[in-house]
Nucleic acid binder design. Structure first.
Length: 179
DNA sequence: CATTCGATCGGG
DNA sequence: CCGATCGAATGA
């Protein structure tokens, strides 16, 4: 009998408790869901992600150590790291891996909406979700992919040219196309 | 304090 | 191509 727990509670800790690159790939095709206070549910199929992998990763916010902002990334996996970018856009990340190891996946886009800032705006995700656990109870969760995602591509992350020769070019950006 | 600079977006 | 816009990080 197929367990019903995944579709009722969304992805759980064992999913996020893995290497951030694996999680970033595996999130492609999954459903990012938000329930408004009025009870309306919006669902977007994740189509593009980026992995930020620990203090050694010069593009990762945690590369400058533990601060009030990066604290969430050091905590347990499955929690949201939401921060304001360029003073305008809220960007949504999901903490992954072991407790104490700062890593997170940036959700960059869905099949309908391209762009990390546009996606959060459309879903109504803002800083108030920072530090919250992904769960239906907290109005933000991710459902497992329904179909197998093929044609996964990878390449350098966006906007991290400052991160040095290696980390600026490492292929930690993942996306898939319908082709 | 003062200054710099982004994991971006939309408009011209 | 460029300006908007603001908080985190850095340095004096």
């Amino acid at each position: 009998m197929k367990r019903h727990i995944e579709t009722t509670q969304g992805l759980t800790k064992n999913f996020f408790d893995r290497d951030v690159k694996i999680v970033a790939r595996d999130l492609l095709g999954c459903g990012l869901c938000v329930r408004s206070r009025q009870g309306q549910i919006k669902r977007q199929v994740i189509s593009e992600t980026e992995a930020y992998d620990g203090e050694k990763d010069l593009a990762c916010h945690a590369s400058r150590g533990r601060t009030a902002r990066t604290e969430v990334m050091y905590g347990p996996s499955g929690y949201c790291y939401v921060y304001l970018c360029y003073g305008v856009h809220w960007l949504l990340n999901v903490v992954t891996g072991s407790m104490g190891y700062p890593a997170a996946v940036l959700i960059r886009g869905s099949q309908e909406i391209e762009g990390p800032g546009r996606l959060t705006k459309s879903l109504g995700v803002d800083g108030s979700f920072n530090g919250s656990k992904l769960s239906k109870r907290n109005r933000l969760w991710i459902e497992p992919k329904e179909a197998r995602v093929t044609h996964i591509r990878s390449g350098p992350r966006v906007g991290v040219d400052y991160a040095g020769e290696h980390w600026a070019k490492v292929p930690y950006r993942f996306w898939f196309s319908k082709g």
